[in-house]
């Protein structure tokens, strides 16, 4: 089963809970962090909407 290994967002009130959460300054910053996490963790970045990304381990 796939596992959420991280959450990246620009809206603090959107998120909470178990996975590591990273707050981005704006959408460009959010893309940058998601990009970094994708490469480093070898996990896919999926966009829930423009302001909320989840990093998912599909293996």
């Amino acid at each position: 089963m796939a596992k959420i290994v991280g959450v990246v967002t620009t809206k603090r009130e959107y998120v909470g809970g178990g996975a590591p959460i990273i707050f981005a300054r704006d959408e460009a910053h959010l893309q940058m962090i998601a990009h970094l996490l994708e490469k480093v963790m070898d996990c896919s970045a999926h966009s829930v909407d423009e302001e909320l990304f989840i990093i998912v381990d599909h293996k």
Binding site: Q31, A34, H35, E38, S44, A45, H46, S47, D49
Partner: peptide, 19 residues
């Protein structure tokens, strides 16, 4: 369509990164 990738009318996957 946003992050969702389709081929014809078949949904393939959600691609997060612009790159």
């Amino acid at each position: 369509e946003g992050p969702n990738l389709f081929v014809g009318d078949v949904y393939l996957m959600n691609v997060g990164l612009d790159e």
